[in-house]
Amino acid sequence: MRSITKRKTLDEIQQYLKGFDHVYILGCGTCTTMTRTGGKDQVLEMRDYLEGLEKTITGWTVIPIACDEMTEVAMKENERPIRNAGCVLVMACALGVHRISTYTNNPVIPALDTLFIGLEEKPGHFREVCIQCGQCVLGETAGICPVSECNKGLLNGPCGGTNDGKCEVDKEKDCAWTLIYRRLKLQGRLDLMRKYHPPKNYQTAPRPKSVRIRTSEENQDGSV
C-alpha cells in the first residue's frame, strides 16, 4: 500500500507561505520518497526554491515514516529549528500532515495533494485499486474492483460508454468491467456477473471512520 501524492503548484505553495519568512521543511522517507514528491532530493529542491524567494529555511529533515508515531521523536530532535520557523511545510501525504500537526503548534502547510492509496504496478506507475469502501466485493469480481476501478463505481456490469475494452473517460484506461468479464470467463465463473448486486451501503462506517481494537479483557464480556 502506498499513499500516492502530487506536488501542489509552486504558485499555490507560494500563496500558502505568504507572510511566513521562516520555514521548516519536512519530507517523508516512505511513500513520498518513492513517488519522488517528498524525498530528500525534492526537499532540497524546495529549500533552494524558497531561498530564491528570499525565505529563510530554519532547517529540514526527512522523517523515515511521517505517519508513524515515531515522528514525535524526530520532531523533538529538531524542536529548535521548527520553533524558529513561522510554519512547517510538509512534503508527506495527508496522513503525515495530520501526524505532524499533532506535534507542533506552528501552522502546518501541505506542499502535496494526496491523490489515492494505490499500488505500484511497475516502476513509476501507480494505480488506485481500493477506495476503502468497507464492503469488499473482490470475491465476486475476479479480484478487480468495480467500485474503485470503474469511473462510476458500477456494480452490475459495464456502462454503454465502454468500447473495445476501454473506458469512456480515458481511451488509454481499461474498462474495469471488461477486465472483470474476461477474468471471470477465464475462471468459468461468468454466472457471478449475472448476479444482481443491490445498491451499496455507503454508510457501513459513517464518516469519519474509526476502529478501535479491543483488548482480550474487553472481549470477555461478549462485546465485539
Binding site: 459495464p158 468500447n163 475494452g165 470467463k185 456477473m193 449475472r194
Partner: peptide, 18 residues
Amino acid sequence: VVTPEATPIEPQLIKFEK
C-alpha cells in the same frame, strides 16, 4: 438502453438481461 454494436458484446448482453 442497450448498445447492440459494442465490442465485446457479451458483457453488454449480460447487463441487458439484468
